[in-house]
């Protein structure tokens, strides 16, 4: 595990990737929290797993269904929870 402390710049970068706008106060608080948490997780450094990773707790096979048309949500149902819609479509913020 990386040994250096988490810098404020790293937290700012992570927040940007996470699409979170954080105040200076929040950034400092999460920097400290992350440092404390990662310090406690140093225990993992001692583990030497020479095995495969378990992405699921039980072995799972790929499951596919027959390629057949099925009932799905209607347009009205899909749009029922949004305030931002226009002519039967979701309306999003501008791209640039």
């Amino acid at each position: 595990m990386p040994k250096e402390k988490i810098s404020l710049e790293t937290i700012k970068h992570v927040a940007k990737l996470s699409r979170l706008e954080l105040t200076e106060e929040e950034l400092k608080k999460f920097q400290k929290d992350l440092d404390d948490i990662l310090l406690a997780f140093k225990e993992l450094d001692k583990a030497r797993p020479k095995c495969q990773a378990s992405f699921q707790p039980l072995p799972i096979k790929d499951v596919t269904r027959e390629d057949k048309e099925e009932k799905c949500l209607s347009r009205e149902e899909a749009l029922a929870n949004t305030k931002h819609k226009e002519r039967g479509f979701f309306k999003g913020p501008r791209a640039v």
Partner: peptide
């Protein structure tokens, strides 16, 4: 903030809007 739950006024680009809603 587009399809369900909390919505804010659609202002700024997608990055700015999504970040504002999530924060």
């Amino acid at each position: 903030g587009m399809r369900y739950g909390l919505h804010l006024k659609l202002e700024g680009n997608f990055d700015e809007y999504f970040s504002r809603v999530r924060s």
